[in-house]
Design a protein around this nucleic acid. Structure first.
Lengths: 229, 229
DNA sequence: ACAAAAGTGTTTTACATACACCCATGG
DNA sequence: CCATGGGTGTATGTAAAACACTTTTGT
């Protein structure tokens, strides 16, 4: 095809993590080379022979060492002056990670990778602030009607973790009793025999998310939904 | 930048129209040149100096003569073999149109443009069937929690048009009384003094969508929502 | 007067909300 | 025994769902 088009295609990911009751995102910084002293979303250019999904996964792995089990396309940013060096469009993604499962050793060692609390994000390169904003909005919308919050928690978690996760992401107060009542009514949580250890106060029973059960219920018309007005 | 990337960027639109109580989409067919005898979503390659949104609007205008007042980015399709001639990624959109407002004279006259009932879609080129599927899903989700259905109707419409629109798109039966009660409780419809003309049965009063009022309510925390279980 | 579609209220049911005290553990 | 967070039930309010007959117009 003889099309006179010179546009580069990149992917970028807003990677969410949740530790110590704080929502965080994963940012990188080039150690050498690049002029700017700014942090950026992990990402990079798509190769000719890889799909978009493959590209994000690869870049994430290369730049941060992280492998996301939840990855969802977010939006494609294509305005003219995103990158001054060339016309670049960015297909963005959101990813959910449990930071405990990975150490950020920054595989390709020219890169610094770090978790930043959502409340203390540094100045970001390009239009990444805008991408992040859209990513947060999507996360808020998505955890309200899909059980994806569990991807951010340990496999076995106390109810309070779930509560705090929702309160943090949606910035709303929860009534603990009603929240628990609702979640249990969905019947997608398994009660384990385990309890928290070494905590102050009464140790909480641990629960796990029953994904298989959820899929079944979903097939039968069940809709997960958590609304915090 | 010295990136060895050879990927072309296209845009495609799933354009919805609604006439005679039937949901339709707008398809095009190249009159000469292209090999395939298949219909396709309107769209084309992005120019170096235009944004993605500008690109869809331009292509829509060029290929079908239509100007969408509602246009929303849908998803970016980027698998390897979408187009056999080259690596092409497609940033897709959905658009809502009232077909009565346009005649499809196919501006660039090498192209045929036609409305197809959603229930009688011909074989589509490339992966456009997949794009269409995602477009329909998005439309169904979106009209459930945003008042975008009005973009498909006349400025003044009888309640029955709204009912039929929702029933058609969501493939669910509506209780007319409850539906009307709910819509009216939102207070985003203006009652006009006009009535249907030349219809069988009792002529219905016409209503119009008060967008300004909706924006105000939205700002105050109101959430539009129509759920048809 | 008949056919066709519009218009209209009430009752029942289910879910969301609001709310406060006792329990288990570690120090 | 005190501090810390975990666990639990009921009453009330509000919105959704179910449901059928009368009205207006054209033929």
């Amino acid at each position: 095809m003889k099309i006179n088009q010179d546009i580069k295609v990149a992917v970028d990911a807003v990677v969410f993590g949740y530790t110590e009751n704080v929502l965080k995102i994963l940012l990188i910084k080039q150690k050498f080379g690049t002029n700017e002293d700014k942090w950026a979303l992990p990402g990079g250019f798509v190769k000719n022979k890889e799909s978009l999904d493959e590209a994000v996964s690869r870049e994430l792995k290369e730049e941060t060492g992280v492998v996301a089990n939840y990855l969802e396309q977010l939006y494609t940013f294509g305005s003219l002056n995103r990158d001054e060096r060339a016309r670049v469009i960015s297909v963005s993604y959101i990813a959910l990670i449990n930071p405990k499962n990975y150490s950020l050793k920054a595989d390709t060692d020219a890169i610094d990778a770090k978790w930043f609390a959502i409340s203390h994000i540094p100045k970001l390169a390009f239009d990444h602030k805008e991408i992040l904003k859209k990513g947060i909005e999507r996360l808020q919308a998505k955890i309200s009607y899909q059980p994806i919050g569990f991807e951010l928690l340990d496999l076995k978690f106390p109810f309070s973790d779930l509560e705090n996760l929702y309160q943090t992401i949606l910035k709303k107060k929860i009534d603990r009793r009603n929240f628990r009542k609702k979640l249990l009514s969905f019947k997608i949580l398994n009660e384990t025999n385990e309890f928290q250890k070494n905590v102050s106060g009464r140790p909480a029973k641990l629960y796990s998310f029953n994904k298989k059960k959820y899929r079944e219920l979903e097939r039968d018309g069940f809709h997960f939904e958590i609304k915090l007005v």
